[in-house]
Nucleic acid binder design. Sequence first.
DNA 1: ACCTGAACACCGTTCAAGT
DNA 2: ACCTGAACACCGTTCAAGT
Lengths: 182, 182
Amino acid sequence: VTDTAQVIMDLAERRIREAGYNGFTFRDIAAEIGVTSASIHYHFPTKDALVTAVARRYNDRIAAAIAREIDGGIEIKAAWRNVFRGALTDGARMCLCGSLGAIVEELSVGVREEVDRFFDCAVASLMAAGLAQDEAVQVLATLEGAILMASVRGDAAIFDQATVALVRPSEKSRRVRRSATN
Amino acid sequence: VTDTAQVIMDLAERRIREAGYNGFTFRDIAAEIGVTSASIHYHFPTKDALVTAVARRYNDRIAAAIAREIDGGIEIKAAWRNVFRGALTDGARMCLCGSLGAIVEELSVGVREEVDRFFDCAVASLMAAGLAQDEAVQVLATLEGAILMASVRGDAAIFDQATVALVRPSEKSRRVRRSATN
DNA sequence: ACCTGAACACCGTTCAAGT
DNA sequence: ACCTGAACACCGTTCAAGT
């Protein structure tokens, strides 16, 4: 994988996460690099091939970030919250697989496989840490919706509000717990 | 608003919720109706105008559905869960404003205003029923992420798993409650 | 190995013209 | 009031050709 290919993927990822699969053109990226759009096709034969490569790199990067959190002793739900929060702060942008998943009927099989893999791996990592399937799916749904809403408003505080209950006991259960110890 | 305009909006809404803003073309819709693409522009001058009208109608329809749930005595979180679940089952499709919100940088101001209005009204209705802002935002994020994940997999059961905790006490708090009464 | 120029069918959009 | 045909610039894609 050449350096030019990496730069193409960087530009494509940013635009997909801001504006979706159709939010960038080969001619846009080519102009930013200083080549012609036909040259992008040398590195990635089709737009689907480019987006598939971007999604695969994104999934691997997220998996590595989760592994680092776990190695650092962070609890699994907090780990996923931190990683999503990091993706958002990286420019108030959507989760790549959330952006692509929203147009599932439009995706090629290659891109779809990567989007599926993202959600599969995320749920699997939460269940491996002991969460029931319901709760694992709920945690991921909350994070995905939170990054979407925060991205729409361009306000990371919305993400924090939507996900704070994932990492601290809810007001309700704290009330229950207090009454249990009284 | 003519009958033809309604049919155009129906077809556009279905495609946006399956495949996104760029998941349909004026020529596609024109062919389904049996006219030429230039004729669609008679009813909606631009694609942005069409999508804005579709989003406005969607928001009004959701608000009416919520009002009906509340009139029927359904608790507010269950009401929103039912309405999102209904939207999903209506063809395993995304929330329209979630699909559009995922490409926020690509939206015209008209469409953006409608997407903002959807989330504003939803959070406001939850807070009007007594929820704290954090919890209102969390409920909506969970529903939005749940419909996205279920739409990606084409499996409504994922929505149910992700949102079941919104309408019944969690296993954890039930355990706490049991120990409190023991 | 990497890039270009020109062409293809398709897209949203416009507009003069038809009924 | 509603629709058409033809044109515009733009898109992804292809390909013969350059270095």
